[in-house]
């Protein structure tokens, strides 16, 4: 190891990463850079599409389609009922897990409210109790009034509501976005 050139070459080959100052003057350092770059490219090409596919739900738009819940005369004034519908974004193989439901209340003649069934505390499904006129959550005892406001327990916010409209005397809701809190 008296030859100084050998020393340098030996030290270089012991290092995994290239000596950035010499990547375009030394063949070995350039090959390190080349291999690292290609390795990065291979990883990117292999991983990015796969990962993008894995989270493709972030790129789909279920759209703000209006979902028909039934003719408005089906619902009695002052009553709150559970209406079942199919998630418009669901796939044919989703079976019963594509079913959704909503607490629909006919406040008065043409005034309807559609409450999301999930408790704002931890997302458990709330139950409507017609006797006391309250929504009650089976998980941690959250309670809401018939207008969705918090009546007791841990929920931090009122029940969420879906946009709702009446078209040709049919009640329709849109589940893409909740209404802002009032």
């Amino acid at each position: 190891m008296t030859n100084c050139n050998d020393c340098q070459q030996h030290r270089d080959s012991q290092r995994i990463l290239p000596d950035w100052k010499r990547v375009f003057v030394n063949r070995q350092e350039f090959l390190k850079l080349l291999s690292l770059t290609l390795g990065g490219l291979i990883s990117a090409v292999a991983v990015i599409p796969g990962f993008a596919f894995l989270v493709n739900y972030l790129f789909t738009h279920s759209g703000d389609k209006w979902i028909a819940l039934g003719p408005k005369d089906k619902f009695k004034e002052g009553e709150t009922v559970d209406v079942v519908f199919d998630d418009p974004a669901a796939q044919p193989w989703d079976g019963c897990s594509a079913r959704r439901s909503v607490w629909l209340r006919r406040d008065e003649n043409d005034k309807f409210t559609a409450f999301a069934i999930t408790c704002t505390h931890l997302g458990c499904p709330v139950k409507w109790e017609a006797g006391p006129q309250l929504f009650m959550c089976p998980c941690h005892g959250g309670v809401y009034y018939n207008n969705g406001d918090v009546a007791g327990g841990p929920p931090p916010r009122p029940l969420r509501r879906y946009p709702i409209r009446i078209k040709d005397d049919v009640i329709e809701i849109s589940v893409g976005q909740f209404l802002p809190e009032t």
Partner: peptide, 26 residues
């Protein structure tokens, strides 16, 4: 019961080893 999210009569609870955390939240 089947995994039908429209069945509102549910009482979800985690498996036993996370029940303590569920209790904290209550």
């Amino acid at each position: 019961k089947p995994p039908d999210p429209s069945l509102v009569d549910a009482q979800p609870r985690p498996d036993w080893y996370l029940v303590w955390y569920f209790a904290i939240l209550a």
